[in-house]
Amino acid sequence: MSRVSHTSKPLEQHSSGTLSLYLSGFIMSVVLTLAAYLAVTTHVASTGVLIAIVAMLATVQFLVQLFYFLHIGSGRNARWKIIALLSALSVVFIVVGGSLWIMYNLNYHMTPSDIHKYLNEQGGGI
């Protein structure tokens, strides 16, 4: 079998990227990273709210990198890659979310009552 000949033109595109796409993705990611970092280090809100802020910023950066770096939605196999990704994310949510709910529940029910009492007195608790 003969080798593919080297031509000066690219035989086909191997990626849907352009310089502006990568650059904008990079800048947005840096901004989102710094935003999350500063939010936490300056303690800009209560813990509960901070968790929500960090989670949101992470999700947005995830989507940014998915689109700007990984070019999801364009190029070959676009449709099936999105289906695969959505399925994987569903499984992640079910398994991780389910596990957290289950483990929290198990830890609570399987802790002896006098330990509950002790933890509550110490200011903590399950």
Partner: peptide, 20 residues
Amino acid sequence: LVLLTSSFTCGLAILATNRQ
């Protein structure tokens, strides 16, 4: 930030690959 930059430069490398 180091890792993020490396992801960016990897993108640049692929752009160069596309243009051979």
